[in-house]
């Protein structure tokens, strides 16, 4: 497989998200002859290559031409196929913003974008290959469903749900090697419904993607070390957002932290902030993520630490947010 850079060692406890995604695509291809796959010279890196080997007549590598790939996919979808397009998240969003908007979303076609190497997960490749603004961009597009799975099993669920749901999708996964959050795919995944990973009433951490595992680890630590009951929501669907879960969290915990491998401008944190502001509920609120600067080169794990979006960063933020003031009276009427 063509892979570009040599990746760092894979811990045995981690499973490559893209590997599971590749398998899921093969299963979809076997069951549904209208499913086709496209890539832009990243068949190996995005693991869509498994589909290529199995269904060569339904696989199209367009070369390094993402704009063309999106247009082709729109034409295919218009003619009755269900194309899955795979590229690095930075190119599947920023590079093709016009094609994604006009060809896929405006026409509301049944095409599924699998954006790999999301966030800073392609650490050593640096800022050109980090997607830290893609969620902000794509969640602004009408008709588009946006999912950021937390691990390989959730990716499988997202891919299957995308096939089963008409319309354009943007599924943002990592380069692979995510910590395994779920034991299998059978935990009740539903588009637009957050998964409660850890119960709690003191504070809620809302996370997506690789940050979900970090949030869970932080919550488990804080329970033992600080006696805090931290609710952790895996907000795998950014659009449509689970407003109900957010409102429930603000009512029941009055403190909210969002955490994402993405800029704090306009991503998960922005989306949650919009819901909180419109709800008029006072709460202590902190957005963890990349603080409006370009990311740097390094191992993904190190970058998550630098940006404060790993478990240590979340633990610190929880402690700080616990001390933040908010209007703590029980009269909600004046806050609406």
């Amino acid at each position: 497989m063509a892979g570009g850079l040599t990746y760092t060692a894979v811990e045995s406890t981690k499973l490559a998200t893209t590997e599971l995604y590749g398998q899921a695509m093969v299963e979809l291809g076997e069951a549904h002859p209208e499913v086709v796959a496209l890539t832009a010279d990243l068949a190996g890196s995005t693991k869509i290559g498994d589909f290529m080997e199995k269904f060569p007549d339904r696989f199209f590598n367009v070369g390094i031409a993402e704009q063309n790939m999106f247009g082709i996919a729109a034409g295919m979808a218009k003619a009755g196929l269900v194309p899955f397009l795979s590229s690095f998240a930075q190119f599947a969003s920023m590079r093709v913003a016009d094609q994604l908007s006009t060809d896929l979303c405006y026409q509301n076609v049944n095409a599924k974008v699998i954006a790999t190497h999301g966030g800073t997960s392609f650490g050593q490749a640096g800022s050109t290959h980090h997607a830290i603004t893609d969620i902000a961009l794509v969640r602004a597009l009408p008709n588009l469903t946006v999912i950021v799975p937390a691990d390989g099993y959730e990716t499988v669920n997202a891919v299957k749900a995308a096939y089963a749901t008409p319309g354009p999708f943007y599924i943002r996964i990592n380069r692979g090697f995510d910590h395994v959050l779920y034991e299998n795919t059978d935990y009740g995944f539903e588009i637009g419904k957050a998964v409660t990973l850890h119960e709690g009433t003191d504070i809620t951490v809302i996370a997506c993607g690789s940050c979900a595992y970090q949030a869970l680890t932080a919550a488990q630590f804080l329970k033992n070390a600080d006696g805090l009951a931290v609710r952790v929501l895996n907000m795998h669907t950014i659009k449509p957002l689970d407003k109900e879960a957010i409102l429930k969290a603000v009512t029941e915990t009055r403190r909210i932290i969002t955490v994402e491998d993405h800029t704090v401008v306009g991503g998960l944190g922005g989306a949650v902030a919009e819901v909180l502001a419109e709800a008029g509920k006072g709460c202590a609120f902190t957005r963890l993520g990349i603080q409006d600067h370009f990311s740097t080169i390094g191992l993904h794990e190190d970058l998550m630490s630098l940006e404060g979006i790993d478990s240590n960063g979340i633990i610190e933020a929880v402690r700080a947010t616990m001390g933040k003031d908010f209007e703590a009276d029980d009269n909600w009427d004046d806050e609406v």
Binding site: E34, N68, G71, A74, G75, A79, P83, D103
Partner: peptide, 19 residues
């Protein structure tokens, strides 16, 4: 938005081939 049509046309043509 200009420069989109030929890509879409290649897509409909490839769809014809697959189907």
């Amino acid at each position: 938005s200009l420069g989109h049509g030929l890509s879409i046309g290649v897509g409909t043509a490839l769809a014809a081939r697959v189907l």
